[in-house]
């Protein structure tokens, strides 16, 4: 049976086709989900792609969390549904309180698009099982509001519980606290990531193919489950 991964399209989603391509290249079947439809069509996992879901003129992701599709996803995630939020998806997961903290305007106040070196800190989540802990990868990063912030206690908790999934190396591109690029929830099924692994899945169009691991991880996990 093919693993089916849903990719949500909000009206302002931009990287939804890219996420679908990444899912396909990893060997799973991408399923397009629509923001206005509560039905997840029986998918085995969900990707919330990058973009500007409803324009994000308010706070990024602040409106999306109230969308019909998110109602089902939030409930599902609490039951263990694997969810990967990339960039805007990460912002939505924080706004939905599935992940702690918030993403704020980059400290240098500019949008930034660059090939970013990361270290995978936690290879035990639903989305990082294909990597080794400590593995370094390079994937594109592109955001205007990617500075991860949380209070010190939360940051200490994330570190202590091993919930920092990826960390920026060489350059901290947006002022994220403790160079945090991605985090997971306690159960490890929900992962939020600022950089874009879906743009590093083909040698032709990406700086590397290092990003594919996020999508093969979920496949491996679901097949072994």
């Amino acid at each position: 049976m093919t693993t089916r991964i849903g990719v949500v399209t909000f009206p302002g989603s931009l990287d939804d086709r890219d996420a679908q391509r990444a899912v396909r290249l990893a060997g799973a079947e991408p399923v397009a989900l629509w923001h206005g439809d509560k039905d997840l069509h029986g998918v085995d996992g969900v990707v919330l792609p990058g973009g500007f879901s409803y324009g994000d003129y308010l706070r990024c992701g602040a409106i999306s969390r109230f969308s019909p599709v998110m109602e089902t996803i939030i409930a599902g995630a609490r039951e263990g549904l694997p969810v990967l939020g990339i960039c805007n998806g990460f912002q939505i997961l924080c706004e939905s309180h599935l992940l702690p903290g918030a993403l704020t305007r980059n400290d240098h106040l500019h949008f930034i698009c660059r090939d970013q070196r990361l270290r995978i800190e936690n290879a035990d989540t639903a989305w990082t099982g294909s990597y080794e802990a400590g593995q370094e990868i390079v994937v594109p990063l592109k955001n205007g509001e990617g500075g991860f912030v949380a209070d010190e206690r939360t940051l200490d908790m994330l570190e202590a519980e091993g919930r920092v999934v990826a960390r920026y190396l060489e350059v901290n591109p947006n002022g994220s606290r403790r160079d945090i690029a991605g985090i997971t929830n306690e159960a490890g099924n929900v992962v939020g990531l600022m950089p874009h692994p879906e743009h590093a899945v083909e040698p032709l169009t990406g700086p590397t193919t290092d990003g594919l691991g996020f999508f093969t991880s979920i496949l491996k996990k679901l097949v072994n489950a």
């Binding site: 698009c113 592109k142 879906e198 083909e202 169009t205």
Partner: peptide, 13 residues
């Protein structure tokens, strides 16, 4: 140019 997204759509060669 780093302030522009050059990756979106996944077809930039």
């Amino acid at each position: 140019t780093d302030q522009y997204d050059r990756y979106v759509l996944g077809n930039t060669v």
